[in-house]
C-alpha cells in the first residue's frame, strides 16, 4: 500500500484529550487528525488516509459504539482504540474483533503507546489492506513506521 502507516484519527468531545493525544502522537511522528464527535469522525474517514482510530465512548451526535459499528462497515480490519471513562461499563467489544482494544480513562501514556504498537503489529487478516512488505514482513514494516 502506498500510504504510510502513520495516520491516526482522534475522536473525542473533550478538547483536553484531543490536544493531549495530538501533542503526544505528532511528536512521535504520526499524522494526527481530530474530530469532536462520531459523525464528524466518520466524515473525516472519507477525506483521507486513516490507519488507526482512537475514540471516546460518550460523545454528542454519534457515540463511540455507533462509530465503531460504522467503521466496521467501511473497513473490518481498521485498528480502533476505545477509551472508556467508566471501566467495565461503557462498551463491550466483540471478542473475535482482534482490531479493537480498550483503555480506561485516565490512561497512562505508556499503556496507550503499547496498545497502539500492539494493534499496528498484529497479523493482518484482511486481504484488502495487504501490501507486499506488510504481508511478507509485517513486524519490520511496523518498526519502520514507528
Amino acid at each position: 500500500m502506498a500510504s504510510k502507516p502513520g495516520h491516526i484519527l482522534i475522536v473525542d468531545d473533550e478538547l483536553v484529550i484531543r490536544s493531549l493525544l495530538s501533542e503526544m502522537l505528532s511528536e512521535e511522528g504520526f499524522t494526527v487528525a481530530t474530530a469532536s464527535d462520531g459523525q464528524s469522525g466518520l466524515e473525516m474517514m472519507n477525506d483521507g488516509q486513516v490507519d488507526l482510530v482512537i475514540s471516546d465512548v460518550h460523545m454528542p451526535v454519534m457515540d463511540g459504539s455507533k462509530l465503531v459499528t460504522e467503521l466496521r462497515k467501511l473497513n473490518p480490519d481498521l485498528p480502533v482504540i476505545v477509551m472508556n471513562s467508566i471501566p467495565d461499563r461503557d462498551i463491550t467489544t466483540p471478542a473475535d474483533d482482534r482490531a479493537i482494544a480498550t483503555v480506561n480513562k485516565p490512561f497512562d501514556l505508556h499503556e496507550l503507546r503499547s496498545t497502539i504498537r500492539r494493534l499496528r503489529n498484529r497479523p493482518r487478516i484482511n486481504p484488502v489492506h495487504r501490501t507486499k512488505s506488510a504481508l511478507g514482513r509485517p513486524r519490520d514494516a511496523a518498526r519502520d513506521a514507528l
Partner: peptide, 24 residues
Amino acid sequence: AAGVAHEINNPLAGIMGYAQLLTE
C-alpha cells in the same frame, strides 16, 4: 459514581497525560 467518573476521568486523563509528557 458513574456520572462523576465520566466527568472527572477526562480532566484527570488530561492532568495525568500532560504531567507524564512533561516528565518525559
